[in-house]
């Protein structure tokens, strides 16, 4: 910060900001207790945990806990998969959710707008366990809906569950489908926060609706878009275990295209439940996420300081 005036300057500032600081106090105290205090548990990544020693008393074991992940021979593959899936999710979800939000606001039939918006929220409530069963009902080669359709149209059956190339599309689709309603609400709220007088001004200037969308709406929701983008970048090395596990299961045939860090860790540790090793993988993911976010945040800062996360 501004260190020119030293400690005295700091207290002067603090006094000047006393109202702000007071308003921040509850959140800061909460965060210290519920986030920073348990965060000290990351030391587990460097410990051989036992119950009697607990988090602090257990013996250190250096980087031992990290080894299994890299030694599995699949660390590169799963890290790549995790990132690629997240990149695809971020881009496709963002574009679709914005499109849905904008188009919803353009619909004049009030009931149609309300009803379709409500319906889009429904998938959010369907758990991944059920989605997994549903997907099996669609893609199964024996009695799957899609294969019945293909054969009815005179085509050859497709064994989706032995065809890894198909799965990036399937996973992206289900991820999009499940989040479209929930995600577009955020953009809807941003659009609703735009001052209507700006639209009126645009209309007077003779802009057509498409120009209005691209020249007014999209720039106006940019701050929200970028914040949400940065927030998802913060999880770019973390895979959605529930989704991958319930849709793919333990089908090794698909792993080349579907195995992510979290599913690999689950497989490796399911029998021995090693806290140190799972903390190590978590730390590995966190550090990579942290680096990525700092870089991307810097880039965004070059574009506009107000859009950055911190």
């Amino acid at each position: 910060m501004n260190n020119k005036k030293g400690v005295k300057g700091f207290f002067k500032k603090a006094y000047k900001y006393r109202a702000f600081l007071l308003m921040l106090l509850p959140a800061v105290v909460y965060t210290l207790i519920f986030a920073y205090y348990p965060m000290t548990g990351v030391v587990l990544a460097f410990k051989k945990y036992n119950f009697s020693g607990g988090i602090w008393g257990s013996p250190w074991n250096g980087f031992e806990n990290f080894k299994f992940f890299f030694q599995s021979g699949q660390a590169g593959l799963v890290t790549r998969n995790t990132v690629l899936y997240n990149v695809a999710f971020i881009i496709i979800n963002t574009v679709t959710q914005i499109a849905v939000a904008i188009l919803l606001t353009e619909i004049h039939g009030k009931h149609f707008r309300k009803v379709s918006q409500s319906l889009m929220f429904l998938p959010y409530f369907i758990s991944w366990v059920i989605v997994g069963v549903m997907a099996f009902n669609i893609f199964s080669s024996d009695y799957g809906f899609l294969n019945r359709l293909i054969t009815a149209l005179g085509g050859e059956k497709v064994a989706f569950y032995t065809k890894p190339e198909a799965w990036p599309f399937i996973l992206v689709f289900f991820n999009l489908w499940k989040g479209v309603g929930y995600g577009s609400v955020m953009y809807l709220a941003a659009i609703m926060g735009i001052d209507t007088s700006i639209y009126e001004a645009a209309a007077i200037d003779g802009a057509n609706v498409f120009q209005r969308i691209f020249k007014v709406t999209i720039p106006m929701i940019m701050p929200t878009t970028i914040i949400l983008f940065l927030l998802s970048i913060g999880g770019i090395f973390k895979g959605n275990f529930d989704m991958f596990y319930n849709l793919v299961g333990t089908n090794g045939l698909l792993y080349n295209y579907t195995d992510v860090i979290d599913t690999l860790t689950f497989r490796a540790l399911v029998t021995n439940n090693n806290y140190g090793m799972s903390a190590a993988v978590g730390l590995f993911q966190s550090v990579l996420c942290f680096i990525t976010v700092v870089l991307v945040n810097k880039l965004v800062g070059h574009y506009d300081k107000d859009y950055t996360l911190f």
Binding site: A27, V28, T31, I33, F34, A35, Y36, Y37, P38, M39, T40, G41, V42, L44, Y49, G54, I55, L231, G234, Y275, S278, A279, G282, L283, S286, C289, F290, V293, L309, F310
Partner: peptide, 19 residues
């Protein structure tokens, strides 16, 4: 940053449970 940092790193289940 103070707030955001907490979304990146977590100590996992054990310390939170103990807390």
């Amino acid at each position: 940053f103070f707030f955001y940092f907490t979304t990146l790193f977590s100590g996992g289940l054990v310390p939170y449970y103990i807390l």
